[in-house]
Design a binder for these strands. Structure first.
Length: 331
DNA sequence: ATTTTTTGACCTTGG
DNA sequence: CCCAAGGTCAAAAAA
């Protein structure tokens, strides 16, 4: 497990870009339109100091870098998810069934499955301090179509938890940090359903739905969709610190905000390198991608491009100069 | 001032 | 095309 978790890579390279959500197919058109509007607005703003041609070149470059950025982020998240899969059975660590038992895509989650063997291994550590106990853990994989025509399996896991009936918060402590983004009353259940996203979104795609059981209001059903591409923050669901955890698995992180003066570059973890554990049963092209990402050439190119992007950013160089100046002793 | 939650409106999907 | 239901967004409110 430690070996499998030794390279959690969370590389968020949103260089000077607004955070882009996981593009839902239906939203792509709108998002593209927005991107176009904003970039052309940029072009207009810039036209006071540069020619139309230059603006267009910059715009094209911007689009290209954005696209590459998105691909890299996606690839690394995917690699890490795979990496975790091979190291242990699931990110939550429960004994799950093999993926071959996956339900059909048209039936994502069996509505009400019979109560099976209680599962206390999942998130039990995080819940042990509360007066709640896991009643059921249910898990299936569903396939979600990707833009390139292939399908990616999304793990859907259902966990029933017994809580105090007077507790109306719909909060299920599972060691991760969640942000609520919606609540809805559904037809088949008088109690509302709460929608949560992982606090690390959009880099972490995991979502969960929490709703009281229609039959037993002391039981809440939490449905998890997807897998975390980062370690569990802490027992209490706190944000991870930079300190090394258990098996020395801390995500490398890069956080760049070129729209403002604050720039955070954290390449200290894992020596700033990208380790990739090759997935034994990975698809051939995935293996190829693994090798490519792990290769020194790729890393060198990545570093070079990042350096180019950063040094080319006037705001970054200004902020850097200002920071260095502050560090210099006054004479 | 900043972050998180709430909640009505909007979007998507399936029948 | 219409409708219903689930899911998501984003402005406002609360912490």
């Amino acid at each position: 497990m430690d070996t499998a978790r030794r390279s959690p890579v969370c590389l968020d390279l949103m260089v000077g870009l607004p955070m882009v959500r996981e593009p839902s197919p239906a939203r792509c058109a709108g998002m593209r339109a927005e991107a176009h509007i904003s970039s052309s607005a940029c072009g207009r703003a810039a036209s006071t100091t540069m020619t139309n041609g230059e603006a267009r070149i910059l715009e094209a470059k911007f689009t290209e870098v954005s696209e590459e950025n998105r691909r890299l982020t996606e690839m690394i998240g995917y690699l890490y998810a795979n990496n975790q899969n091979f190291g242990r059975q699931s990110p939550e660590g429960e004994g799950e069934q093999p993926a071959s038992t996956a339900a059909s895509p048209t039936s994502p989650v069996g509505k009400k499955r019979g109560r099976e063997s209680p599962d206390t291994s999942d998130s039990g550590d995080a819940n042990s301090d509360k007066k709640i106990n896991m009643v059921e853990a249910d898990h299936v994989d569903v396939e979600s179509p990707l833009s390139n025509g292939t399908c990616r399996r999304i793990k859907v896991k259902k966990v029933c938890t017994r809580i105090d009936p007077s507790d109306t918060s719909l909060v299920v402590k599972d060691g991760y940090q969640w942000r609520k983004y919606g609540q809805k009353v559904t037809r088949d259940n008088p109690s509302p359903r709460a929608y949560f996203r992982c606090a690390f979104a959009p880099s972490c795609p995991v979502k969960k739905k929490v709703q009281r059981s229609a039959e037993d209001s002391s039981v809440v059903e939490a449905t998890y969709e997807g897998e975390h591409n980062h370690p569990r923050p802490t027992r209490d669901g706190e944000l991870p610190s930079c300190a090394t955890q258990g098996g020395g698995s801390v995500p490398c992180s890069i956080s760049i905000n070129s729209s403002g003066p604050t720039i955070t570059l954290d390449l200290t973890k894992n020596g700033g390198g990208v380790q990739v554990v090759e997935a034994g049963e990975a698809q051939p092209d995935l293996k190829k991608v693994c090798r490519e990402v792990a290769s020194p050439e790729f890393r060198a190119a990545l570093v070079e491009q990042m350096a180019r992007e950063l040094t080319g950013d006037r705001k970054f160089t200004d902020a850097l100069a200002a920071a260095i100046l502050r560090k210099l002793p006054d004479y």
